[in-house]
Design a protein around this nucleic acid. Structure first.
Lengths: 235, 235
DNA sequence: GTATTTGTCGATACACTGTATCGAGGAGAG
DNA sequence: CTCTCCTCGATACAGTGTATCGACAAATAC
């Protein structure tokens, strides 16, 4: 049926007997290389051939360490989760969740491609599990269903918000102008659309809205969610 | 730099002089066919060759109507936006936003692939613009920055929540079991991980949490966001 | 020390992708 | 009827992920 679902990942595959064929090579090295390539040139730069070339190896060499390309991508995702520091155990639920939220946001800003790998398979790597575990643990409500509901809602907001940020960032990068400048140039199409008068609110947003600091916007939206949780569950 | 950003879409390209070469063909028809294929078999079924074949045409025939594959995908996204009915003008901000949220959720459940096309380019098709316009219009606050902030936060939650739902759905479909059954089988890897005792909260979630109705979960998280907004802006 | 087995590595090949190119062929003008 | 133009789509190309399998190196047997 669907695209990104094919085989189960083998998270704990043992390293093949490291006969020093050319350069030692290892899963870790392959993943790190792939991450570097993706950071530098986007996900397009991550093909088995390109990764292999970056390691002075033939493409098929990688298949000794990795089952399929999808597995490599999953490993890359887990690598990013590994960079995120868990909230301090002393933190309350609110500060804990804020810590997690910003940790994820920062990680995605370092690795934009991460957001493109979200919609596929579930995240079940060890780092991802640890991340989920510590996130759940920071919310010390009695009812486990409440904990799950709260964490899911916050994570949903975080992923959605970060996705929006990255999309906007890419748009600016592609058009070569900031969202604010849109009002002037924006490509003739957008201008024509606005001129039809069918989109007064959009026009207002583009002309009159001040472009706030992205962190502030993120924090503000996160505040809505956390406030709602606090209200619903009595502080 | 990044992958999904290449050329600007031409939303209002005029139809080529419809010389009836074989079957009339048209942008609309091509897009509808692509959507059907994606609905049936996932995004993998949408290749220019496959779409063309479904229309008894050669691949290059499509290029008379479409500049690039990315443009086709953008058009598909806009088609989905076109299915979503705007909130009634009489609705207050809270009901209006709930209407939009559920409209989007329903649309994505009809077209799972939609969620895979989110992380790329911005949505600037006419239907997408209309959707954004009516969504903004349903929040009648004085400050335009507040309106934008509120709508952005809600949309972020919606996209994130829906993405999570689809991911979970795909996981179930792939493993052939419901999230609840995970506790028993779940593939040896997950079991082993839980057995390490390093993930007590995860274990608790998988064993003790009741699997609630997805709509209820979605609505509950949405409630957090809307409550937070109401609290922050004085009902 | 040689012969034989065993196993891994990666060159080659295949099916598929998006799309540039350009010759054939039909529509319209004279 | 002839010539011109212009559109269409077959062919080709560079790229993808990965299956196959021959060659070669290491380990074992004698």
């Amino acid at each position: 049926m669907s695209s990104p679902m094919s085989k189960e990942v083998v998270w704990d595959r043992p390293e093949p007997p490291s006969r020093p064929s050319r350069v030692p090579l290892s899963r870790e090295l392959i993943v790190r290389t792939a991450v570097r390539l993706a950071d530098e040139g986007g996900l397009d730069e991550v093909s088995l051939r390109k990764v292999a070339t970056a390691l002075n190896a033939g493409p098929m060499r990688l298949y000794g360490y990795i089952e399929t390309k999808a597995e490599l991508l999953d490993l890359m995702v887990d690598e990013v989760y590994g960079e995120i520091t868990p909230p301090p155990p002393s933190a309350g639920w609110r500060e804990g969740l804020r810590h997690v939220a910003h940790g994820l946001r920062d990680a995605v800003r370092r690795h934009e491609w991460f957001i493109d790998l979200l919609s596929g398979r579930p995240h079940q790597g060890p780092n991802s599990l640890r991340h989920m575990e510590t996130t759940l643990a920071t919310v010390r409500f009695d009812d486990i269903d409440q904990v799950l509901g709260v964490v899911s809602a916050v994570m949903a907001y975080v992923f959605g918000a970060v996705r929006g940020e990255i999309t906007e960032l890419r748009t600016e990068r592609a058009t070569g102008m900031t969202e604010e400048q849109w009002q002037r140039a924006s490509g003739p199409y957008m201008q024509r659309m606005l001129d039809t008068g069918r989109f007064p609110m959009l026009g207002k947003v583009m002309h009159e809205s001040s472009d706030r600091d992205p962190v502030e916007v993120f924090e503000s939206g996160l505040g809505y969610v956390l406030d709602g949780i606090a209200a619903r569950h009595g502080i």
